[in-house]
Simulated assay, not measured.
Amino acid sequence: MTATVDQDVEEVPSGGKVPLVELKNVGKMYGNITALKDISLRVHAGEVTGILGDNGAGKSTLIKIIAGYHPPSEGELLVDGQPARLASPKDALAKGIATVYQNLAVVPLMPVWRNFFLGQEIRKKSFPFSLDSNAMRATTLTELSKMGIDLPDVDVPIGSLSGGQRQCVAIARAVFFGARVLILDEPTAALGVKQSGVVLKYISAAKEAGFGVVFITHNPHHAHLVGDHFVLLNRGRQKLDCKYDDITLEHLTQEMAGGDELEALSHELRGKGA
């Protein structure tokens, strides 16, 4: 990946950098149901923030707030240190926040280049209603090459690519259309070991290029491989917030698995088997 993010950002009094995205005591209510409560986190340029949690932990709700689908019910969302109200994903993308969802929102039978520009097609200046297919093919090849994806034929249906390759095409697309913050929704959930490794390499490459990456996952091993900062959600609450140097994989896995609850269950099951 050769694309880079401008690192000349404002310094904060503490000596650190202003986060690309910051949440302060954010909560979300759906009627009488509390989906999130008191969530605070920072997404910095050149870092991967791992958001972990089991099903129902609040990860999807958190994505929707940062991506502009839903406003928070309480708390504050800041972009580049300034309060922001995101009314739609288009608003979020205008501020450099792009989300790559697990289902990728691709059309499997369409060629790679058509999916790359889906909804944002390039049209010929002389014929506004005619697609400039040559320009889109060339751009797709160039942008995938920047990501290190060797795909000589972008006319193949995107459904014929491996899961890892499709994820990387989606990431390259988000970068091309102006993302500085990449929100990746369970990108390795449906992949095998080898393809997961491909995606993790590109997440690491995005970090090295200066992008802020939000890596949503329920896999602590994958998060620990590329993450710089970890936030663990449990039933809409923030259970853990720490940096890579402050936690081991074993501890992260234990916290993710339930810690004391898992140990109690283990004793109970052993007792029944005795």
Rank of each mutant, 00 (worst) to 15 (best):
M1G: 13
T2K: 13
A3S: 14
T4Q: 15
V5T: 14
D8E: 13
D8I: 07
V9L: 06
G15V: 10
K17G: 00
P19N: 04
E22S: 12
L23V: 03
K28T: 03
M29E: 10
Y30A: 10
G31R: 15
G31E: 08
S40K: 03
L41P: 01
L41N: 02
V43G: 01
G46Y: 12
V48T: 12
T49N: 00
G50Y: 00
G50W: 01
L62S: 03
K64I: 02
I65W: 07
Y69R: 01
H70I: 14
P71H: 10
L78Y: 06
V79F: 07
D80N: 14
Q82W: 02
A84T: 12
A87F: 02
S88C: 01
P89E: 09
K90D: 14
A92T: 02
A94I: 01
I97D: 09
Q102A: 08
V106H: 05
V106T: 09
M110E: 11
P111W: 08
P111L: 08
V112F: 02
L118H: 10
I122C: 00
R123K: 11
K124E: 13
S126Q: 10
S126E: 14
P128K: 01
L131H: 00
S133C: 04
N134G: 00
M136A: 04
M136R: 00
T142H: 15
M147Q: 13
I149M: 15
L151E: 05
P157E: 07
S160G: 02
S162A: 07
R166V: 07
C168A: 13
V169R: 06
F176A: 13
F177D: 03
G178L: 08
G178F: 10
R180D: 05
V181K: 02
V181N: 00
L184V: 08
L184K: 10
E186Y: 06
T188F: 02
K194H: 15
V198A: 12
V199H: 11
L200K: 11
K201I: 03
Y202P: 01
S204F: 05
E208V: 03
F211K: 11
F211A: 09
T217Q: 03
N219Q: 14
N219K: 15
H222V: 02
A223M: 07
L225D: 12
L225H: 11
G227S: 13
F230Y: 13
G236Q: 09
Q238F: 10
L240F: 14
C242V: 15
C242D: 00
K243V: 10
D246K: 10
I247C: 03
T248C: 07
T253F: 07
E255D: 08
E255L: 11
G258S: 07
D260N: 10
E263D: 13
S266R: 15
H267K: 15
E268C: 05
L269I: 14
L269S: 06
R270F: 09
R270V: 04
R270T: 00
